[in-house]
Design a protein around this nucleic acid. Structure first.
Length: 201
DNA sequence: TGCCAGGCCGGGT
DNA sequence: ACCCGGCATGGC
């Protein structure tokens, strides 16, 4: 895949905090919509833990409106920020100073942060070696018979971590390539025949 | 035009 | 323990 597509410049966030917020906003959402929401936050001078902490949920919801599901996401972002302040004094650096396994469980305890969002935060903002599974990963590998269709998130994560060297750069690039390839060739109700991905896998 | 997007939660069975 | 609807904007 890498030979065919090259490096993906994945998650072009300027700061770890921007990546974290993007990870929540992009839940089941096109990235171009998320970019608009991030631009709004930036333009309003609110793209920081303190900046968001001082907003109420309604104000935040208006700023992130283009990202869709803005009411739920505003609550999720606020919940995360409140948690960040109560647990890590509002500091991502302190948060990322935790051990991987502990921090992952910690993140999963925050309402609105599921396994993919947690792993995205850990890998793309914190540079931890944790593999990110998403809908494309599942679709591509189950359709090709590498994993059962009914695999759980953690089963798939273990599958990839068990078959790949534990390497942050590799995990980063691999997930990015899967998503971008999936966008082109692996839609939910359009099964390509023959599948162009055969050669990659 | 309908389909799709880098999920997750909560309620009903 | 599953299954399923709700959440909502924007691009093609």
């Amino acid at each position: 895949m890498f030979d065919a597509l090259g490096p993906q410049r994945w998650w072009p966030g300027e700061t770890p905090f921007e990546v974290v917020i993007g990870a929540i906003l992009t839940q089941n959402t096109n990235w171009s919509n998320v970019e608009k929401a991030i631009r709004n936050l930036k333009a309003a001078g609110r793209l920081s833990p303190e900046g968001i902490h001082e907003l109420n949920v309604t104000e935040l919801a208006q700023l992130i409106r283009p990202s869709g599901f803005f009411n739920v996401k505003a609550r999720r972002v606020k919940t995360f920020i409140n948690w960040l302040f109560s647990r890590y004094e509002g500091s991502l650096s302190k948060m990322f100073a935790q051990d991987l396994a502990i921090l992952r469980d910690d993140l999963l305890s925050v309402k609105g942060i599921g396994p993919e969002t947690a792993d995205s935060i850990l890998l793309y903002a914190g540079n931890f070696p944790t593999f990110v599974v998403d809908a494309y990963t599942h679709r591509i590998f189950s359709r090709h018979g590498f994993i059962p269709e009914e695999s759980t998130y953690d089963e798939m994560k273990s599958f990839f971590e068990g078959n790949l060297p534990k390497d942050v750069k590799l995990y980063n690039e691999y997930h990015a390539l899967l998503v971008n390839i999936g966008k082109m060739f692996c839609k939910p109700k359009k099964i390509c025949e023959p599948c162009p991905l055969r050669d990659f896998l």
